[in-house]
């Protein structure tokens, strides 16, 4: 059974790079397709972006493990 984590999002640190979405879609859909990703970034190039998770997200934490800007982290772990 896959581990499940609480993912803490800090939109202020998000740069809109979509690396989290590339990782999620390649893991669950075997293609690079951010539109199918279970993590959703809105207004990525505006003043205040929003980070949401779809109902299908199983909180595997791979998005947070690959975030290079500290915008996503797993509860109990330091910013990656």
């Amino acid at each position: 059974m896959m581990e499940s984590f609480k993912i803490i999002a800090d939109p202020k640190k998000c740069t809109g790079c979509r690396i989290c979405q590339f990782i999620c879609s390649s893991l669950y859909h075997h293609e690079f397709n951010p539109s199918k990703s279970y993590i959703i970034i809105l207004d990525e190039y505006e003043l205040s972006p929003t980070i949401q998770f779809s109902d299908k997200c199983n909180h595997c934490g791979q998005c947070a493990r690959n975030c290079l800007y500290g915008a996503l982290k797993l509860e109990g772990e330091g910013i990656s």
């Binding site: 740069t15 809109g16 790079c17 690396i19 590339f22 951010p34 990525e44 003043l47 290079l68």
Partner: peptide
């Protein structure tokens, strides 16, 4: 705000 192109680290 710092922003990035898609896939940029």
């Amino acid at each position: 705000r710092r922003i990035a192109c898609p896939s940029c680290p």
